[in-house]
Amino acid sequence: MNHSPFSFAFLQGAITPTHIAEIVQQNAAMLTLGAHSLFLGQVRADEKENGSITAIEYTCYAEMATAQIQKIITLHSTQYALKSVFIYHSIGTVAIGEICLCVAVGAAHRKEAIEACQSIVESIKKEVPIWGREIINESTSIWKTNHFSSSQ
């Protein structure tokens, strides 16, 4: 694991509970940190016209995505005085029920942690060149679309 408290990685396939536990462990060494805010995105078995989703296959424009996420981390770290930010996004296939996005924010107090976490998740969905293809079965898939209404 990267030992910078501000880090991002693409992971092949699902993000595991072990990855998330390691973040909590790493924050334990930061004695000015008083609040963790954690967002986990999980692949839903949404019903579509031709059946229900069984997995999402993620692709990205790696160099640009990495640069965009680093910008998002820098911006939020400054704005919210964050102590740590760990971001994982899956690449490749993630099955329903598995985790595809992890945003873990550490701050001195809850308000900064919660607000920054929410804003980072929104920024990732809007500003980072990653694409999800929702797999129904071997011959059917749909390009995922992100929505930005209050229900998302």
Binding site: H89, L101, V121, I124, K125, I130, W131, W143, N146
Partner: peptide, 9 residues
Amino acid sequence: ALLPPFSGG
């Protein structure tokens, strides 16, 4: 690069 609307997360 030609980029369709992003749909990460």
